[in-house]
Computed example of a mutant assay.
Amino acid sequence: MSEKTKIISKILSLYLITSALFLSYFSINDYKMAKEALISNEVKNLKEIKMGIYMKASMNGINSAAALMQEKQVSACIVSKDGKIIYQDTECLQDTKKNVAFLKDGKVVIYEALQSMESNATGELSTANILLEGRDIRSDLNLLKLKILGNLLLILTIIMVIAYYLAKLSLEPLHAKINALNRFIKDSTHEINTPLSIIMMSIETTDKSTLSSKNLKRLNNIELAARSLSNIYEDLTYLSFSKSDAIKKEQINLKNLFNERLEYFAPFFAKRSIIPQINLSEASINANLYEVRRMIDNLISNAIKYSNIGGFVSINLSKNEFAITNSGEGISKEQQKKIYDRYTRFNNDQGGFGIGLNLVKRVCESNDLNIICESEIDQNTTFKVSWS
């Protein structure tokens, strides 16, 4: 997945989650209101049926009312004022408060006086209470849920499509600049190669025995600068042109490789008055030699660069792990979350492009290695790389 796709995916995910939460809140309220309206309509129908039951029972007896209830597909329990059950084809809930409506097993139920128009009536039916149970509305409620859920998904889909094109449109200028920067780095990397090779060759072929101590020091400084530039060139070449899916892996003797790289960095240690503390045991790893060399070079270079003058750098190699520690300002916990991001730098005094640790992380992922950083502000910094 490209960096552009990752960014758009993150934006869309955040936008979709917030939109879903926002719309869910209104959908739930919409469902509650629709549910209440459905129940209210059922209660209204039951009240109309209740009046019909009273009229039928008063004029033609309770059996005619039973026929009406069967026709309307409702059940009832009619209880007289003194608690006598006049009619029952459903459970009587005599402890229920009067003038209430509620759901029972998905059915709307009302419990109230059988008639409320004649307040002075004294007949058994006139003073009786009725518990009237209507139809099962669970299927209606499920249909209501599906309808609201469908509307929610439709709206979210429309929002996601609009958000995708808005995010893509708004990020286009940024990605154009990033692509221009990457093209510049690739072009610059290509142009650096020839003059850098000439400088390094000239330094190696210079007869140092004929130079004065002052000029020799100057030449050493030029060599250090050329080596630093060579490291940057190698890093840029790897990041810009390497294809991790086509790397060749081999068995690497890490002890020999560390000794080789420590010899290469010896002038850098001397420049900052650092005597490295070296503890190398025999260890090997199956990985890409070029990539592992780039990783080690970056970790040693950073340890030297960010160590205080006259400080210390320790390198410890064991069978399944190596650790590189340096003194210095340390790295905060907050900064450690971002140290592997490309172009991220927290110390402007030391220069650089902020690509070294990004390269290290990429090498670790490519070769199945684990890397952790242990550090705090004003404490030592340790990078540990392990493998199984």
Rank of each mutant, 00 (worst) to 15 (best):
L280R: 00
N221P: 05
S314G: 09
C364H: 01
K147M: 05
R294D: 09
K208P: 02
E172S: 14
C92A: 07
C364V: 03
R138N: 15
L257W: 00
N231E: 08
N367Y: 06
Y233S: 12
A101M: 12
K147C: 03
G354D: 02
I278G: 08
I371R: 06
T206S: 12
L166Y: 08
N308R: 12
I199Q: 03
I17C: 09
L141T: 03
T325Y: 09
I7F: 07
T96L: 09
E374K: 05
F22A: 03
V313M: 08
L257N: 05
C77H: 00
T5G: 13
G330Y: 03
Q70K: 12
L14S: 15
P267G: 01
F346N: 01
I78R: 10
Q379C: 09
E204T: 12
N326L: 01
D82V: 04
I324C: 04
V313C: 07
S2V: 07
F265L: 14
M201R: 15
M33Q: 15
A128L: 04
F241K: 14
I8C: 03
V79Y: 09
N142I: 13
L14Y: 13
E91T: 14
S13N: 14
N380A: 10
N41E: 12
Y343F: 11
K305A: 02
S230F: 01
S332C: 05
K81E: 07
G83S: 15
T237E: 14
Q335R: 12
S170Y: 15
A167Y: 04
K337Y: 09
I339D: 07
N193E: 01
D349W: 10
T90L: 09
N370L: 06
R272D: 13
S58T: 03
I53G: 00
S19G: 13
A303T: 02
A266Y: 04
K243R: 13
L289E: 00
D30H: 04
G134F: 02
A67G: 15
I339A: 04
S2D: 07
I331Y: 04
L132I: 02
K305F: 06
E42T: 06
S281R: 08
L211N: 03
S188G: 13
L141Q: 10
E374C: 15
M117K: 13
I252G: 01
I11F: 07
E334F: 06
L224P: 03
E374A: 08
E118T: 11
K35R: 13
E291S: 05
G354P: 03
N60E: 04
L196N: 11
L280H: 00
G354Y: 06
I53Q: 04
C373H: 08
A323S: 13
S388A: 08
P195W: 01
S228L: 12
